[in-house]
Design a protein around this nucleic acid. Structure first.
Lengths: 151, 151
DNA sequence: TTAATTGCAAACGGTTTGCATGGGC
DNA sequence: GCCCATGCAAACCGTTTGCAATTAA
């Protein structure tokens, strides 16, 4: 029995960009940025001028559901997506968001300490509140270098 | 010279609920929940039937700007607000969000360790990326006790 | 031939804005 | 009188839904 349709695509470097799913997957794979649905739509249009924004949304929804993509909200009113196992990104990382220009920087400092603390916290919380924790997010907010200089 | 209009209200237990600002401030003070703009609007209506939703939004915006309230996004499409120094809440805490019923639990376990790690991380990040960090958020997502039992 | 996928247009829902009215100093 | 605060209705904008047409199995 074969796995789901996307299974072999994940490890297939030479996939063709034909249908919307493979198209969006390809775009996500080739960026280290945090693209919004519309960002992806615009990029997709260049390779398939007949694709619809709705399909991009539905595709991203699917990707998020099956776990190959993650959806983030950095507080600027639009969701952003990144591939769960993007070869261009650090495996486990968090985000720093500039409150002015909304640029996003990935970081992965002190991940060992963080994971340790998170594990401890998760254990305590699931015991205390009987809460089954699936994942956590950490966001730092502040002012980036170029925004501070421009001031 | 006196401070801004809200300064003495903050320490005034017996403020009157007349104008929208004092009304909203009062509601935020008396809850330990994470109310949305509409939640607050509905509550405000009970004390002042002529208040408008727009005013609630503008008031919350003001509160967030001057720092007496914090705005949160837990991923359900509507912003939620809590008073920065709510006497009913733990001073420094984070949130656990149920992915099913969207209920939110505050927690403040391992805050000493967390603050230590955050301080360390902030220092490293501001050095490495010249990023001036203002604040951070940590959210845990999972399934709460009653949602798991209902399954 | 039957189910799944797609694109379009319209709907949706939380939030914001324009604007005219009202209230305080 | 002047300025800020307020409420209403309409606009906004990212996202979702209904539906008919197309494609894949």
């Amino acid at each position: 029995m074969r796995g789901p349709w996307w299974q072999d695509r994940l490890n297939d470097a030479g996939f063709r960009l034909t249908n919307p799913r493979e198209l969006v997957l390809g775009i996500l794979r080739e960026t280290d940025k945090h693209l919004s649905a519309e960002d992806l739509y615009v990029k997709a249009l260049q390779k398939n001028p007949s694709i619809g924004l709705t399909t991009v949304y539905r595709t991203l929804d699917l990707f998020t559901q099956i776990g190959i993509a993650q959806k983030f909200d950095f507080g600027d009113g639009k969701a952003r997506y990144e591939l769960a196992n993007n070869p261009l990104k650090k495996a486990h990382h968090h985000h720093m968001v500039c409150l002015k220009c909304k640029s996003i920087i990935d970081y992965s400092d002190f991940m060992k300490e963080e994971l340790e603390l998170m594990k401890k916290t998760e254990k305590a919380l699931s015991k205390k509140h009987k809460f089954k924790i699936m994942y956590h997010i950490i966001h730092f907010y502040g002012i980036c270098n170029s925004c501070r200089e421009g001031d």
